[in-house]
Simulated scan of single mutants.
Amino acid sequence: MNTAVVCSGGLDSVSLAHVLADAGKLRRIISFDYGQRHRKELDFARAAADRLGVPFHLIDLSGVGAALSGSALTDDIDVPDGHYAEETMRITVVPNRNAIMLTVAFGLAAAQGDAAVATAVHGGDHFIYPDCRPAFTEAFAAMQRTALDGYADVALLVPFVHRSKADIVAEGARVGTPFAQTWSCYKGGEIHCGRCGTCVERREAFDLAGVDDPTVYEDADFWRAAVAGRGVA
């Protein structure tokens, strides 16, 4: 099944791209510039496409992202430290982000004759992001069947939607994903901060999966206290 992967350049989506490439199903990688402050992640997405030998599509949604104000990912708002599941991480929500990106990705996939679009939403996202939950992905897939009826038949693949980030690390390791060539940190510094929700979740996932974490963090030990207390420092 020829599949387009929506890829941010993060651990989850790059691992998914490698899993699909290992199965001979990866057709292309699609990324989005929505004006995110940490857009350096897009370089990692492009590198994944080059490494896997598939076309890379970078879609400019910066004008749309500018209108979706109020998120620490797009506005000059501090990204909080602490565990990913904390209530404070809701400041990182960009409303309808996945819904918008998937809609564009489905249009591109239909135009290019792809059979599926894959996204790496996972169980750990459900606390915070409504457009990462199974109810959303099921409804979106049904909507796209109607939207493309008579023109194209494009499936939505969400292999991690009921799985954990640790499961993604294990799957990525199985197919040789170069984890050091992925970017998760929401602060977008020279190296991963080690303190924001995505850094804490990333470090915890490697620990739970029993896989060595090659990531260099500014604060490599913060995650332990954040996980133990589910708190913010």
Rank of each mutant, 00 (worst) to 15 (best):
L52A: 10
L52K: 07
L52D: 07
G53Y: 06
G53W: 03
G53V: 11
G53P: 03
G53R: 08
P55Y: 12
P55M: 10
P55F: 02
F56S: 02
F56H: 13
H57S: 15
H57M: 11
L58A: 13
L58W: 14
L58M: 12
L58N: 13
L58E: 14
I59F: 10
I59K: 08
I59Y: 09
I59Q: 05
D60C: 14
D60G: 15
L61E: 12
S62G: 08
S62I: 10
G63Y: 14
G63A: 15
G63R: 14
V64T: 15
G65F: 06
A66I: 05
L68E: 11
L68W: 04
S69P: 05
S69C: 10
G70K: 12
G70I: 08
S71R: 09
S71D: 09
A72G: 15
A72I: 10
A72M: 11
A72K: 06
L73D: 04
T74C: 14
D75N: 14
D75A: 13
D76A: 11
D76G: 08
D76W: 13
D78K: 15
D78R: 13
D78N: 08
D78F: 06
D78T: 15
P80D: 08
P80C: 06
P80L: 08
D81A: 10
D81K: 03
D81G: 02
D81T: 06
H83S: 11
H83F: 07
H83V: 11
Y84V: 03
A85K: 06
A85R: 12
E86C: 11
E86G: 14
E86Q: 14
E87R: 14
E87T: 15
E87P: 08
E87I: 14
T88C: 02
T88P: 03
M89Y: 01
R90V: 05
R90H: 10
R90F: 09
T92C: 12
T92P: 01
V93P: 02
V93T: 03
V93L: 15
V94R: 01
V94L: 09
P95V: 08
P95Y: 04
P95N: 06
N96W: 09
N96E: 05
N96F: 08
R97P: 04
R97S: 05
N98T: 05
A99Q: 10
A99K: 06
A99F: 01
I100Y: 02
M101P: 02
M101H: 09
L102Y: 05
L102R: 01
V104F: 13
V104N: 07
A105V: 05
F106A: 00
F106M: 04
F106V: 12
G107P: 00
L108W: 00
L108R: 07
L108I: 15
A109Y: 01
A109D: 04
A109W: 01
A110Y: 02
A111C: 13
A111H: 04
A111D: 05
Q112L: 14
G113K: 06
D114H: 00
D114F: 01
D114S: 06
A115H: 04
A116Y: 03
A116D: 05
V117G: 00
V117H: 01
V117T: 03
A118R: 00
A118F: 05
A118L: 05
A118D: 04
A120N: 04
A120S: 09
A120K: 02
V121G: 00
V121K: 00
H122R: 01
G123H: 04
G123R: 03
G123S: 07
G124K: 00
G124M: 00
D125W: 02
H126W: 12
F127T: 12
F127P: 00
